[in-house]
Simulated scan of single mutants.
Amino acid sequence: MFASLPRLGEFSQPFKRAQFGLFGGKTKQYGNNVPFSKHKTRRSWLPNVQTKRLPSETLGEKVKLKVTTRALRTIKRAGGLDNYLKQTHAHKLSHEGMRLRLKVKDTEKQKRIEYLRTPEGKQELEKQRGAHGVRSKIATALFLKTKRIANLLEEPTLEGARKARQEAAKALGLSGLASAKETIAYISRQRL
């Protein structure tokens, strides 16, 4: 009765009707009618499904969906249909939910691209690039400095660095350990 997980992946749901709406993980439930005579008969309970038109800010339209009351509460808590679709785990979304999620994400991406083409968007993009540029320059400089130190040391370990700092301090006539700059200058003069 249930499809294999690898075949359906994220979309596996046993309740067929749930594929065409937002059921929020609710499915058909089974149990027994138990009258006074204790003669049990099988019965089922269906989820409370309502047909609603829910507004989507990203799509700019109202989407007609079959939704359970539980999903309606969750949509309200999430702050709207778009947020609900983005935040909900895929195993709780149906085929229709995943289709809407992809549609919302594509529309948001398209709107973002259009915004970045405007003068305000270009300005924001330059600010982001500038911030990343400074960070990447600092990271590159630190990487090159540590690589240079590792190349200068005989043993590129913590003990090797400590020995080099002690040696530099003795040569420079300092008490204790030499600073990193003094050690690098001393080692590079020795190598030349």
Rank of each mutant, 00 (worst) to 15 (best):
E108F: 00
K103D: 09
I75Q: 03
L46R: 11
F2W: 13
T146C: 08
T68W: 03
K26N: 11
V34K: 03
G176T: 07
R191I: 10
L144E: 09
K16E: 14
T157I: 06
N83G: 01
L100D: 02
L100A: 04
T74L: 12
K28D: 10
F2Q: 12
F23Q: 00
L192G: 15
A139F: 04
L46V: 09
K64G: 11
L85Q: 03
Q190D: 09
A71L: 01
D106V: 01
E57D: 13
L125Q: 06
L46P: 04
H91R: 12
K103W: 08
S175Q: 15
E124A: 10
L153M: 03
T51I: 11
I149C: 06
K64V: 14
G130R: 05
P119R: 02
L72A: 01
G133E: 15
A139R: 04
T107H: 07
R7N: 11
H39Y: 05
L177A: 09
V63Y: 07
E61V: 13
A78L: 02
R7G: 11
Y84N: 03
R189N: 10
R148T: 12
R7D: 12
K127D: 04
K76S: 14
K38R: 08
K137I: 05
T107A: 11
K64R: 15
A71Y: 04
K86F: 05
L65A: 08
G173W: 09
L93R: 05
R42C: 07
D82Q: 06
L72W: 11
L85C: 08
R191G: 05
S12I: 11
P6G: 00
F23E: 01
F143Q: 13
E96A: 15
Q190F: 03
R42P: 03
R191C: 03
L153R: 04
M98T: 06
R148F: 09
S4K: 04
N48C: 09
R117H: 04
K92N: 15
T51V: 13
F11S: 14
E57R: 12
G130I: 01
G80V: 09
R112D: 06
T41R: 12
A78S: 12
K40T: 06
K40H: 10
K52Y: 00
T68A: 00
V63D: 06
N151W: 07
E10F: 05
E159D: 15
R189H: 08
L153F: 06
R129E: 12
E96P: 00
L116W: 02
V67E: 02
R43W: 05
L144V: 11
A90C: 10
H132Q: 13
N32P: 00
Q128H: 06
N48S: 12
A141D: 02
K64D: 14
T69R: 13
F23K: 02
G130D: 04
K16I: 14
V34P: 01
T118F: 02
G60H: 03
Q19I: 01
G176W: 03
F15I: 02
T69E: 15
L22W: 05
K28C: 08
H89S: 15
G121E: 01
T107Y: 05
A141N: 00
F36V: 05
G31D: 01
G173D: 08
T51P: 04
Q29V: 04
I149S: 05
R112H: 07
R7M: 10
R101P: 06
E167M: 13
G25R: 02
K137G: 04
F20I: 08
L153C: 03
